[in-house]
């Protein structure tokens, strides 16, 4: 039982990271119906920027976190402006292929510049390096940090989406782009802002996974990116609370499969879940059915 609870704690920590990434997938899909394949790579860049700040610039964790988020936000907007915006009226498959191209470009560009070898993340110091025992369970400070930062970011995101003008614009554009445009909403700016938010969250996830696993490499975004996408689909793609629930669910599944079955099977299980959802209820846990008008 204790072991199980310990796994739950690990699962929630990992799930937090997936939830942060899944939010980016879900917001972008909600607004331009694109699986942003490059999202996992923005997360990887977040991890590398964090690494650079903490080792080369010797900054503390929190400044590094902010810089990571900022750099990723800029990168996300740049990707959108350069690669996706010109294809606003192209087929969805064309944009998807572009996204795959951007993803390859970032992954192997990083590999070319920063070498393919993994790097080990700097250890945190002070209170952030401790771990706490509560009734036989171990909470590492990193886990607590990950969970708290994730919750704070999610609350902030909810406030932005629900309470601000731009948040209202985001919701309007994702419901009906043309109508939103007629109502005087700048669709382009709203889409860019969506990428900005999603990418900043991915940047945060990147630096958090760095301190959690201590090792980063240029291809680290690929599989976690796909898992986070599965999380978004599980919760109902396009729905923000769905992505959060999905993220924690996939995190828990991964930890449980690794802990009780075999860590080699975790991706097989995650993809099997994906295929089952897509076939049984493609709109996900919180989604509504839609149909094509004939």
């Amino acid at each position: 039982m204790e072991q199980f609870l310990q796994q739950v704690i690990n699962g929630i920590s990992l799930g937090s990271i997936y939830a942060l990434m899944a939010l980016g997938y879900t917001m972008v899909y909600g607004i331009i119906k694109l699986i942003n394949f490059a999202h996992g790579d923005v997360y990887m860049i977040g991890a590398y920027v964090g690494y650079f700040c903490m080792t080369n610039l010797r900054l503390g964790f929190f400044p590094s976190l902010l810089i990571s988020m900022l750099v990723c936000a800029i990168l996300g907007v740049a990707i959108e402006k350069i690669a996706y915006k010109p294809l606003r009226n192209a087929t969805r498959i064309a944009v998807l292929i572009t996204a795959i191209g951007v993803s390859l470009f970032i992954e192997y560009g990083t590999m070319y510049i920063a070498s393919p070898n993994p790097r080990s993340y700097p250890r945190l110091t002070g209170f952030m390096a401790k771990s706490y025992q509560v009734g036989g369970l171990t909470f590492s400070a990193q886990q607590i940090l990950i969970i708290i930062i994730t919750v704070v970011l999610m609350i902030l995101l909810q406030l932005i989406v629900k309470k601000t003008r731009i948040g209202k614009a985001m919701r309007a554009v994702s419901l009906d782009r043309d109508a939103a445009q007629l109502m005087g909403i700048s669709v382009d700016n709203t889409i860019s802002f969506t990428f900005l938010l999603g990418s900043a969250l991915a940047g945060a996830a990147g630096i958090l996974v760095g301190i959690y696993y201590n090792s980063i490499n240029p291809l680290m975004g690929m599989m976690p990116g796909l898992r986070a996408f599965v999380a978004a689909v599980f919760g109902g793609i396009g729905i923000i609370p769905g992505a959060m629930i999905g993220g924690y669910f996939i995190g828990l599944v991964e930890v449980m499969v690794s802990g009780y079955v075999n860590s080699m099977f975790r991706d097989a299980v995650v993809f099997a879940i994906l295929i089952v959802i897509l076939i049984v209820k493609p709109s996900g846990l919180l989604g509504k059915e839609t149909r094509e008008k004939v």
Binding site: A83, I97, T98, G101, L104, E107, G109, Y112, P116
Partner: peptide, 16 residues
């Protein structure tokens, strides 16, 4: 690595 960078850029450029 360069080959893959070129592949990635190629995909984007073709689509654009």
């Amino acid at each position: 690595e360069l080959k893959m960078v070129i592949y990635g850029a190629l995909l984007v450029l073709i689509m654009l």
